[in-house]
Design a protein around this nucleic acid. Structure first.
Lengths: 218, 218
DNA sequence: TGATAATTTGACCGGTTGGTAAACATTACA
DNA sequence: TGTAATGTTTACCAACCGGTCAAATTATCA
């Protein structure tokens, strides 16, 4: 009756890896829909297709499981921002960042909702990660944007609020999916809504940041 | 031992009105932070400063309470969009709509989070209201925007996604407040962030929708 | 004032929650 | 193969959940 997660001096068993994967997948499904407090361990166990004690053999508490899930998802969630390239063409960098974020909202809505739930409820478990790695990455990219603006390549604007607005507009299609569908109606709520959104957001951001129609102050 | 909410043939007592107010205020506080399933009646009762049975004397179930709260808040929440005036100047109408939404995010963050929680978790209790009154209102205003675009007063764009983007960017400052603060750091996370946001969003939307730099297709 | 209705409360209930104990089954490996 | 480590299950627990009940308290008004 050894505890699997304590035995870290040795390599993890194949079965451990598979089960933990299976559990985190189920946890994502449930946590993203109900939030931390609203989710139940029984529910996650059922989705994972195993008994509750068996699940708790791999993750000793509900919180351990939640924390493991958040940490893992946060990492991949920030990939699009990491790809943001200081050497690239500003307009096309912003354009493809928007596109990547929108694709993630379409393909990984549960991950988006997991964060939204966590942040919405005060981010009790990941405040450190927000103030640490996340802030560091955003600071870095904000500096890139500021450099572009100073060089006159894009309109002068607050880089932090620019990033916020890209986050919010794109993630909206994952987090508020129910509302988006309800408002668009069943005629217009097909998968085409992501392409319509992409077209609109490109127009909005490229137009709003185009240097040509901003008063150049340099 | 009469039931107060059944006695609707007569006028509500002053004490009834006050208590119900008190309860909904507490319910807003708790529901907005934990969502429906995450909130507990005991917690709401404690915040409201009364015993649980006393609370349940006014709202017989947790769901009744939640529904009453949502219905009331949804109504005032849509006020800014109702003020959207077809006869006004397009640019200043959009500008003041953004400003009003941003003020609501600043002054009523709990209301915003209440909806965010509800929508995020699949909107089980308000799907009808989304597909009914909300959709009707948005349809109406979308038609106004489309008219403006056809008249060449603003750039041609998808009016629904325009509204979505205004919703998401402004409500972001209420719903994701913790993240916004964490990223901005304590130096820049003062109340000035709302003014910075207002300035940025104005630039973004007015620039992105300005007809002057859009190829006129008419 | 007194009686009647409205309000408030402590004690309680059945069901669910996160988590545990220990027996049982399976795997890894000498 | 044997045995020790790993994995799984059944039965269970105390705490908490939404909600009820009957008794006690307070407001209303003839």
């Amino acid at each position: 009756m050894a505890l699997p997660r304590a035995a870290r001096t040795q390599r993890r068993t194949r079965i451990q890896e598979a089960k933990e994967e299976q559990i985190l997948e189920a946890a994502l499904e449930v946590f993203s829909l109900h939030g931390f407090r609203g989710a139940t361990v029984d529910q996650i166990a059922e989705v994972a297709g195993m008994s509750k004690p068996n699940l708790l053999y791999y993750f000793r508490t509900k919180e351990t499981m939640h924390r493991a899930l958040i940490t893992r998802v946060l990492d991949t969630w920030l990939d699009p921002l990491r790809e943001f390239d200081a050497e690239g063409n500003p307009v096309s960098e912003i354009r493809s960042y928007i596109r990547r974020k929108l694709e993630m909202a379409r393909d990984f809505p549960r991950e988006s909702r997991l964060f939204a739930n966590e942040i919405l409820q005060g981010a009790p478990n990941i405040e450190d990660e927000l103030k640490g790695p996340l802030k560091a990455l955003v600071d870095e990219k904000a500096e890139v944007i500021r450099t572009w603006a100073k060089a006159g390549k894009i309109a002068k604007c607050d880089p932090y609020h620019l990033i916020f607005s890209i986050w919010s507009t794109t993630q909206h299609y994952a987090d508020f999916d129910v509302q988006v569908r309800a408002v668009l109606g069943q005629d217009n709520a097909g998968e085409g809504r992501f392409e319509d959104a992409a077209r609109f957001l490109e127009q909005l951001f490229i137009g709003g940041l185009n240097v040509s129609e901003q008063p150049s102050e340099v």
